[in-house]
Amino acid sequence: MTKKLELVCPAGTPASLRAAVDAGADVVYLGFRDATNARNFPGLNFSRDELRAGLDYAHARGAHVYVTINTFPRAGDPGPWREAVDDASALGADAIILADIGLTDYAAGAHPELRRHLSVQASASNAEAIRFYKEAFGIKRAVLPRVLTIPEIAELNRKVAIETEVFVFGGLCVMAEGRCALSSYVTGESPNINGVCSPAAHVRYEEEEGRLVSRLGGYTVNAFIEGEKAGYPTLCKGRFVAGGQARYLFEEPTSLNAVHMLPELMAAGVTALKIEGRQRGRAYISQVVAAFRRAVDAAAEGLSVPREDLVAVTEGQRKTSGVYEKTWR
């Protein structure tokens, strides 16, 4: 009997946490309201008090809470990151999700009893890398980068005795996570350092000659004609000119949806499924989490996975199976 997949769901606010738990999340992951996590967006995330209340709410309903501390501490200023680890531990978080080697080393030393997961931002894309984190810091679970195909995930699970968690829905990083400086190249702020990608403060939308033009840090990232589906100007989802042709060079503005692949992911030895979208609203959380709750339960019973229509909440209102299909590369 295959173990039921754990459903790990995002929350950017206490309201979203409650929505996720109510919709059937096994786990909610979240971050503090500062640069210690990779969704450091304005108006988003949790204060210490909000985390305490969120933990109470989740635990009372049998759900867990993971605290994401997955940016890379600034040289000369480890304080905020270490405090985040200390506070997550003190408040009773069920696990912390880490990317930085130095911080993971700190957490393993200061809070050995606190379960440590490896963030996707650590970009551990092969068995040797994951084994390194496991052996060096007692990492219990690795969130796999979205660069691996399902056969590669299966091979990895055969080689390393560790829990693996994979993304199944939401915004898709096209680049290897934790190894992308595109955002900081034009805005000065990056996922690794500031916890932001293509930050809103550097975004401008302007109507020009009947087109909606989106710019990031002064660079035109896209332009939409009337009626064309728009997207947030994340650099890797922008339209650029290469070889004389305007195109979505890196990736179309699509969302990952691997709901139909749950049986394959189970067979590949995956432990947990992750839904992206801490920056999305309660409406998104409720809808997506409920859909995946049904799908995970069906897959565990060996039933066919219900077809879930989540197109309306996907970026560009298009979806992709991403790299899980080899043709994506």
Binding site: A15, L212, F224, G227, E228, K229, A230, G231, Y232, P253, Q279, R280, G281, R282, A283, Y284, Q287, A312, V313, T314, E315, G316, Q317
Partner: peptide, 13 residues
């Protein structure tokens, strides 16, 4: 109201 997702609304323009 929070019943629609802001991103979703924007994606649909």
């Amino acid at each position: 109201e929070g019943t629609s997702d802001g991103d979703a609304l924007f994606f649909s323009r």
